[in-house]
């Protein structure tokens, strides 16, 4: 690649005047290698693919997180199911124990049926 020309303070000419424009500091280059229209299309395609891949990577990352969340939710559901099963079992055992206690107390109580009663109606 080589400098073709450098333009600094180009002078403009008007009808009867000459003036210095502002300093543009512009550099122009002329490439040694020229690319054709096919290569342009190919490069654009490559850029599109790269952008696509980037988007896909980000999307996949989100999907991966979602999959992880779904996995954790599944574990939570599993543990909740286990907790519920144990809660029910616990309630049944507690109720059975209370029944047994109640029967024990009842059997030790005086049977009031043994007292004679009188018909009053």
């Amino acid at each position: 690649m080589s400098a073709y020309y450098a333009s600094r303070r180009a002078m403009t000419t008007g009808m009867n005047t000459m003036s210095w424009s502002r300093n543009r500091n512009a550099v122009r280059h002329n490439a040694n290698i020229q690319i054709g229209s096919l290569m342009h299309v190919f490069i654009l395609f490559l850029i599109a693919v790269l952008i696509g891949l980037f988007a896909l990577t980000q999307g996949t990352k989100v999907a991966q997180y979602d999959a992880d969340i779904a996995g954790v939710n599944s574990e939570i559901a599993e543990l909740e199911a286990r907790r519920d099963a144990l809660t029910v079992e616990n309630a049944k055992i507690t109720a059975a124990a209370a029944r047994d206690d109640s029967n024990e107390v009842a059997s030790s109580m005086v049977n009031t049926n043994s007292y004679p009663e009188y018909a009053r109606e």
Binding site: G59, V62, A63, Y65, D66, A67, A70
Partner: peptide, 10 residues
């Protein structure tokens, strides 16, 4: 959802 029917937030 994805192909495995896992909900995704996209």
């Amino acid at each position: 959802t994805d192909v495995n029917e896992i909900p995704i937030s996209i």
